[in-house]
Design a protein around this nucleic acid. Structure first.
Lengths: 247, 247
DNA sequence: GAGTGGTCTAGACCACCCT
DNA sequence: GGGTGGTCTAGACCACTCC
């Protein structure tokens, strides 16, 4: 009774548990029966149950805490409006949330991730600011920003509490346009730790380039969010065309 | 030697294999040594190796084919320019690719997914068109579109070969604006089959609403793509503001 | 101490692909 | 037939949380 296509035991178990979650038989935030009980309940081995539960963690449906139990994940997603405001701060306030920032590190690094290629980043060393953005005390974004090294220490200090674009704007920087690359990706190591999500968990990434009137001064960065914490919205006119056509 | 935090065996194995892939020790498209050999090589059980290999499949790094072997996934990502053209067709051509469409089904359904809520979809039955879009013979999008039922059969027939927005535009429909909700999500059942990806595989979704001059006529839909097949780019002006402010 | 989930193992069987 | 990956099991140990 093993190995049949499309009818793997752990898959059947997964589907049944999914059904129970969707039908609120297992309520949001509530604990599931223990793996041992489920194993007896389903008439399969404990390992097969664990396999199913683990897959459901990767799918964002469950969340297990060692020593405590397995729980139904609560879904509450924050929706970011891309063309309303350039700062997440305003966006959060608009939705009645309390945004806050935790600075992680401040280093000098090169931009390495090849995903940045489309944004044509500079090759040299840049200031690298890593931080976590919270909304209502739950972390929703892990942000890594890269700036030219010509930023004064005074400005640097304000990054602890404010968004980079806000700080720079307050100091007279005039932004002209924003280029965004949006993609999905399995959670990075940092994201796994920050959001307590398992390996391979789907995340939404936004790689950005903020251009300014000063041609050589651009801010680059990535923000990574668990798929169930953030989505983004953008509205385009039918006659909208980009500033310049390439090629 | 079990259960230490952050040093799980399968994790160490996963990292080492990842390193070998990144350093091209295991070349793109090439087969890895079999699980049995790797088990001996690493000095761990075959099951632990299989666990690591499975996690790397979910992360899009490897791909296993039963009976054949485990291979390094080839990464070639298609980048969709959101504000350049409204149709993927033009976009594909611009990049020198051969786009093609495979119609999957044509039904009458309601829009059910709550992710559509932000786009304010109608409650009633709509025409539902499902299809797969290929670029250079590899599937890159699974599209589900919803249209008002007032579409003529003649128009309907053209959906087999063309993009919906193109067909409607050819028949005189004038689009005004596009509202997009972009998020990540674990692969749906359909996506798992279409793209041969495992459960929980990260995908990029784009939910859209195409509005027309006729107020009651809007086209809704979702396109889902594996994270390693598609990303999208958008460029915004610093002074860009949405048509109307809500609240 | 009892219960929880997480990890690791050895061993077995299956379906698949190639020769 | 011999190799491959996928599945399932029983049994064991660990770290954790709560009482």
């Amino acid at each position: 009774m093993t190995g049949q296509i499309g009818t793997a035991l752990h898959e059947a178990v997964r589907q049944e548990i999914t059904r129970r979650v969707r039908s609120a038989e297992y309520g949001a935030g509530q604990a599931l029966p223990s793996a041992a009980i489920l194993a007896e309940d389903f008439g399969v081995s404990a390992i097969t149950i664990k396999r199913a539960l683990r897959d459901l963690q990767s799918a964002g449906i469950l969340r297990s805490v060692p020593g405590l139990g397995t729980f139904v994940r609560e879904q509450r997603r924050f929706i970011r409006d891309l063309d309303f405001s350039l700062t997440s701060y305003d966006d959060a306030l608009r939705l009645g949330l309390k945004p806050s920032i935790h600075l992680i590190s401040l280093t000098r690094e090169k931009i390495q991730d090849p995903a940045f290629d489309v944004l044509e980043p500079p090759a040299g060393l840049m200031l690298c600011v890593r931080k976590v953005i919270f909304a209502d005390d739950t972390p929703i974004m892990y942000d890594t920003s890269y700036l030219p090294r010509s930023v004064s220490d005074q400005v640097l200090d304000e990054f602890r509490e404010k968004f980079i674009s806000d700080v720079l704007r307050d100091h007279g920087t005039q932004f002209t346009k924003t280029k965004l690359l949006i993609d999905a990706a399995p959670a990075s190591d940092e994201a796994q730790q920050t959001f307590a999500i398992p390996n391979g968990y789907p995340t939404l990434r936004r790689l950005y380039r903020l251009s300014t009137k000063e041609k050589s001064f651009s801010v680059f960065g990535v923000t990574e969010s668990p798929f169930d914490r953030l989505a983004c919205v953008v509205e385009l006119d039918a006659d909208h065309k980009p500033p310049r056509r390439r090629k």
